[in-house]
Computed example of a mutant assay.
Amino acid sequence: MNTFINNEEIKKKVIFIMGATGTGKSRLSVDLATHFRGEIINSDKMQVYKGLEIVTNKITHTEKQGVRHYLLGEIEPDSDFTTEDFCLQAIIYIEEILKSQRVPIIVGGSNSYIEKLVEDPVFMFKYKYDSCFIWIDVEKSVLNRRVDMRVDQMVKAGLVDKVRQIFIPDADYTKGIRRSIGVPEMDRYLREETNIDGDDESKKMILQSSISSIKRNTRMLICNQLDKIQRLISEKMWLVHHIIATDVFKEDREEDLYEAWTNIVLQPCLDFVKRFLKNDHNIIIEFT
């Protein structure tokens, strides 16, 4: 008996996690990957480079929880890794992940990367893949306080020493990993600290000014990231699941952070993704 089969190929499924810096994208990606047998492709344009783990705020080995990550610290620091390079490499990794019957999860704050990947007809992404977009969002005043604290933690963890190791006078801050927020801002201080005629108090003031610049530029980055996400929704008509995670990061939430994260962020995202993946027979999913 002949059975009619629809010749239209079922699109393969890819998950995107979007949001401003400091909103918990990496944590969410690992949580989803552990629930749905996923593997993660980094789409942060500074985290693709090798080195400066503290400055670029790369996810740590422990935080990965054994989940495989791609395009994380793979590219040589002085390379000019373009959006086209990202797209070509991301598609290779997406197919590699799908062949192993796992779920590709693309995560990062560089929306220009994912817009190019999804929208550029050269890559035929919309023709081949079905996308689930999750935007994890935090109210700006809460997020600004959070990233200010994070910069202070990065300084304590050795940010200045790490930047000093790659410091070159007259370096080109428009290429490679030196574009990272935290590198060009330290230029004046690193020049001044070698000045034997400079007094310690002056150097200390310059250092504090450099740290303030890192915080200010990170806040500007957040504004740009949010503007781009809004544009993708309004102009490109992306259907985005919007998760407001503000309450997770409020100061009075410190003691029950895990419970707040689970209830406010993780559980709704698990529900979205479960519905998205439910009818996909190309991957093996262990629903928990």
Rank of each mutant, 00 (worst) to 15 (best):
Lys64His: 01
Glu201Tyr: 13
Lys140Tyr: 03
Leu143His: 00
Asn7Ser: 12
Ser212His: 08
Ser209Val: 00
Trp135Ala: 04
Glu63Trp: 02
Arg219His: 15
Ile181Ser: 08
Ile15Arg: 10
Asn217Cys: 01
Ile177Asp: 10
Asp120Thr: 11
Asp85Ser: 11
Gln267Pro: 00
Ile244Arg: 09
Gln267Trp: 07
Leu88Lys: 08
Asp31Gly: 07
Gly19Asn: 14
Arg164Pro: 01
Glu95Lys: 09
Tyr93Leu: 05
His69Ala: 00
Lys11Pro: 03
Met149Gly: 07
His61Ser: 10
His242Tyr: 15
Lys228Leu: 15
Pro104Ile: 04
Glu185Val: 01
Asp197Ile: 08
Phe86Lys: 09
Ile59Thr: 10
Leu207Trp: 09
Asp187Asn: 15
Met154Asp: 02
Asp80Ala: 14
Lys99His: 03
Val151Met: 02
Gly108Ser: 03
Ala20Leu: 09
Val160Tyr: 05
Ser43Gly: 10
Asp247Trp: 00
Pro169Lys: 09
Glu193Cys: 12
Glu192His: 13
Thr194Phe: 13
Pro121Ile: 03
Lys25Asn: 15
Gln208Ala: 06
Ser212Glu: 11
Ile54Phe: 07
Asp170Ile: 03
Ser212Asp: 14
Pro77Val: 14
Glu9Trp: 05
Met154Ser: 04
Leu270Ser: 14
Met237His: 15
Leu117Asn: 09
Asp80Gln: 14
Ile206Ala: 12
Lys250Asn: 07
Met205Leu: 12
Leu221Gly: 04
Asp271Arg: 06
Ser209Lys: 15
Gln225Pro: 07
Gln153Glu: 09
Tyr129Lys: 05
Leu266Phe: 12
Gly73Val: 07
Glu193Gly: 04
Ile177Gly: 13
Leu32Ile: 11
Pro184Ala: 11
Lys228Val: 05
Cys223Leu: 11
Ser213Gln: 08
Thr246Asp: 04
Ile41Cys: 05
Met46Asn: 13
Val151Asn: 02
Val147Met: 06
Lys236Glu: 15
Ile40Cys: 02
Arg150Lys: 10
Phe123Thr: 01
Phe167Met: 01
Lys45Glu: 14
Gly24His: 10
Phe123Leu: 09
Thr218Gln: 07
Val183Ser: 09
Asp227Glu: 09
Met205Ile: 12
Gln89Met: 12
Asn6Glu: 13
Val138Lys: 01
